[in-house]
Nucleic acid binder design. Structure first.
Length: 509
RNA sequence: GGCUCGUUCGUCUAUCGGUUAGGACAAUUGGUUUUCAUCCAAUAAAGAGGGGUUCGACUCCCCUACGAGCUACCA
């Protein structure tokens, strides 16, 4: 028997921004597909027209592009041979299978109104019974199992609204193997006759999901744990449709939890938690509420992938920094943990810091240039890159680039007061004046020569370095901390360094 | 309430019956650094509880507790 080509899908609903839990699900699908040389598909599950949010689909596509986990098939990434990839566009394909289920006795028509359903649930709740539409309660409802055959026929011909429900057996064990959890067992006695086909002519998630996964030859369904309870329903559908042999393997991922310990991370958390839950900035078109994204918060996509990969998976070694290629090579479902993981902001920050430190100066410079442009500052690109090299180990987020480097572009006007208070004395102006002269005479304005000039000025005035070096720094940058002193001055260049010292001489009293 | 899944340092986790229960983040302390950051070193920190099985249980089984998910003509 030849192994089937691995095909996995990420199937979000366009009901809002994609949150990072979704990104992680997409990531695991992606890693799994790449690891096995298979396909990664993006399918849009928009069977609920009432919850459609404009822009959400585009947002999902852009988010996947930004983090660099691009599907090789599907909406926004080029259609493959299984198009279309949006369920609303596949609407005509489902009816056939729904009819098949009805004909084979695995599903039935139901005509109950919302009020009748409510009444049934209230009644059952009042008598402390599980309020579900099931093999017992359906006998008291209006459906093709209880109504006379001609009545059902009449209603259908009449165009009366109806749904199609699955016809569950009374007591039947449904057992399936989850790649992460092992064998999981449910009993149909605790399940209900779920709606498969809605009165608006659209399938529900369950029906569409199974039909699509089958038609698209999906081999592995890797999705969040919130789907575990509906997995037996899906298993039953594969069976009833006669597709048991083609049933994909299931892997239910542990959930991403809020840091405070209760509840899963959700779209509605927005910025409430103090860190982004979305990959990109998002404005809810209905409420106008703005939420920030990882990108705009200054995260690097490689870092986001790395930190997300480690929320629920680990390689079993001490290595924590993984490139995308390394993740692909190391990933396996067996090493995915079973329990939910709380999001840890500190660890996320640490990951990002690591990636910024290792980051390419050219790429960081692109980011810094944007921030400079926002301040109406223009600078030589190679200068900007060198600034990035000097400061990148100090920051955790790209958005901090300008904050930590502004004095490289704008000469300081104010000086750190505590340093001045502590170090400025009658000798300071003399040292600075000498320093200006000495620096002026340097032909090659480099690290070593600047340091030599500095020491010469100190010796001449009988001042010790520890009493003056930070003063020197403040004169040049205005602030007490920063990259190595002489490297910084070398990057400023002779003219700027001297200008800065002269300004300091005039301004500091 | 019912069903299902889960439970190792504050957090993410390693351990696949025999370990002084390991690592990372965070914390604390010290060192390096003119400074901040980096870096280095050290300290503190965990098997939910109770029963079994076994020569031996963090690891296997059961119960309890706790947590989470689901319980819609939402996904």
């Amino acid at each position: 028997m030849t192994e089937k080509r691995v095909r996995v899908r990420f199937a979000p609903s366009p009901t809002g921004a994609l949150h990072i839990g979704g990104v992680r699900t997409a990531l695991y699908n992606y890693l799994f597909a790449k690891k096995h040389g298979g396909d990664f598909i993006l399918r849009i599950e928009d069977t609920d027209q009432g919850r459609f949010v404009p822009g959400a689909e585009q947002y999902i596509i852009e988010s996947l592009k930004w983090v660099g986990i691009e599907p090789n098939e599907g909406i926004g990434f080029g259609d493959g041979e299984y198009a279309p990839y949006r369920q609303s566009d596949r609407k005509p394909m489902y009816k056939k299978y729904v009819d098949q289920l009805i004909n084979d006795g695995y599903a039935y028509y139901a005509f109950d109104t919302a009020e009748e359903l409510d009444a049934m649930r209230d009644r059952l709740k009042a008598s402390n019974v599980d309020s579900k539409y099931d093999p017992i309660t359906r006998s008291a409802m209006k459906n093709s199992l209880t109504l006379p055959e001609d009545e059902t026929k009449r209603r259908l011909e009449n165009g009366d609204p109806y749904v199609v429900r699955i016809k569950l057996p009374r007591k039947d064990e449904v057992k399936f193997h989850d790649e992460i959890r092992g064998w999981v067992t449910f009993n149909t006695s605790t399940m209900d006759d779920k709606v498969l086909y809605k009165s608006d002519g659209m399938p529900t998630y369950h029906m569409a999901n199974v039909v699509d996964d089958y038609s698209m030859q999906i081999t592995h369904v890797i999705r969040g744990e919130e789907w575990l309870p509906s997995a037996p329903l899906h298993v039953l559908l594969y069976k009833y449709l006669g597709w048991e042999d083609a049933m994909p393997k299931f892997a239910h991922l542990p959930l991403l939890l809020k840091p405070d310990g209760n509840g899963k991370l959700s779209k509605r958390d927005g910025d409430k938690l103090g860190f982004p839950v979305f990959p990109l900035d998002w404005v809810d078109p209905n409420t106008g509420e703005k939420s920030s994204g990882y990108k705009q918060a200054g995260y690097l996509p490689e870092a986001v992938i790395n930190l997300l990969a480690f929320l629920g998976w680990n390689p079993g070694t001490a290595q924590e920094l993984f490139s995308k290629q390394e993740l692909i090579a190391a990933f396996s479902l067996e090493r995915v943990s079973k329990h939910g993981a709380k999001f840890d902001q500190n660890k996320a920050k640490w990951f990002n810091h690591q990636y910024i430190k290792m980051g390419d100066n050219g790429l960081l410079a692109v980011e810094l240039n944007k921030q400079l442009a926002a301040q109406n500052i223009t600078a030589d690109s190679s200068y900007v890159e060198q600034v990035c090299e000097l400061i990148k180990e100090k920051i955790s987020f790209t958005k901090e680039l300008f904050d930590y480097s502004n004095y490289f572009f704008v000469e300081p006007r104010v000086y750190d007061e505590t340093v001045i208070k502590k170090r400025w004395n009658e000798k300071s102006p003399l040292v600075i004046a000498d320093l200006i002269t000495l620096l002026n005479n340097i032909s090659e304005f480099n690290n070593a020569n600047i340091e030599a000039a500095y020491h010469e000025a100190l010796t001449k005035n009988e001042v010790e370095s520890k009493d003056f070096l930070q003063m020197f720094r403040v004169c040049l940058s205005g602030v007490a901390g920063g990259p190595p002193m002489f490297e910084m001055a070398a990057l400023f260049g002779k003219q700027s360094t001297i200008n800065r010292l002269e300004s300091a001489l005039q301004r500091i009293k």
